[in-house]
């Protein structure tokens, strides 16, 4: 009796685990299918340049301030933390390049990606979700306009272009912050600081960050628009879709970061 109970309990757990694995795989399948349709419509006329420019403005320009703010503080705090670690072994002259490399390869693309996933990704899912529940998406389709082409494509292209640019900005501002703290607060000699920066920092490091940011931008916007289109009913559905877009956008950034790193270190 006791054994049977135990076995049923175990079976139920395994079943549930299996179900969630199947669900995850199905979800991945659906989003890949969605990606395929986005690609298909990306290269079909009419090209919607005006919508693209609007989205570039929204994703790009409107994230500049927050990226500058986050970037400068990231650089400043990194300089501090690195300095106190390096001072112990007397390599404080290397604070500059270490902060710069960390920013270029990891922090700038990942943090800018998280910011864009939170800000623009949420907005995209909310906009498309609202259009879905108010039948505006159907209205487009009834007119014979592809809602994927009209709504998803401009957002995906814009984010894929804008995120590497924001990452570049993040990197620049972050380094400015680190130089400021390093030379003015921590009193590292300015000439040494900049010299070491030039010695250890290479274009390949910057490329690594920019390539990552391009992939992040593509995936964040793909995930956000996907969850927007998945919204089925009501304001509650829009809230849920927005939430999923942000959560999965951010998780995708963090997970992809690992795989991209392990791939890019070999080819760059």
């Amino acid at each position: 009796m006791e054994n049977v109970k135990k076995r049923n309990f175990l079976l139920a757990r395994i079943e549930r685990l299996g179900a969630s694995i199947i669900e995850a795989v199905e979800g991945l399948g659906r989003i890949s299918h969605f990606a395929g349709r986005v690609f298909y419509w990306m290269f079909k006329r009419p090209y919607r340049t005006k919508l693209l420019i609007n989205q570039l403005y929204f994703v790009g320009n409107k994230s500049i301030f927050i990226c500058c703010l986050a970037g400068s503080f990231t650089g400043m705090v990194m300089a501090y933390q690195t300095y106190f670690g390096f001072k112990i072994i007397n390599v404080d002259s290397l604070v500059g390049p270490v902060v710069a490399l960390t920013l270029a390869k990891e922090l700038a693309p990942v943090l800018a990606g998280l910011i864009v996933a939170g800000r623009a990704g949420a907005a995209m899912a909310a906009q498309i979700g609202t259009m879905k529940v108010t039948e505006q998406v159907d209205a487009l389709e009834v007119m014979g306009i592809s809602s994927i082409q009209y709504l998803a494509v401009p957002r995906v292209i814009a984010t894929t272009i804008a995120l590497p640019m924001l990452t570049g900005l993040y990197l620049f501002v972050g380094n400015a912050g680190s130089v400021l703290v390093g030379t003015k607060a921590l009193m590292i000699d300015e000439a040494i600081y900049l010299n070491k920066l030039g010695e250890f920092m290479f274009m390949a490091d910057i490329w690594q960050g920019l390539i990552k940011a391009t992939v992040f931008g593509f995936v964040i916007s793909l995930v956000a628009t996907y969850f927007g289109f998945q919204v089925r009913s009501g304001a509650e559905g829009v809230g849920k879709g927005t939430n999923l877009a942000v959560v999965w956008g951010m998780i995708s950034v963090l997970v992809l970061d690992y795989f991209l790193t392990s791939f890019l270190v070999h080819i760059l």
Partner: peptide
Amino acid sequence: LRHFRQNFGMLFQYAALFDSLSTYENVAF
């Protein structure tokens, strides 16, 4: 098929106007 749909007009239950466009722009769309 998309092209063929231009034979149709549809009035939705809640009108389904594009909410970022004015009255004029909705009709001009």
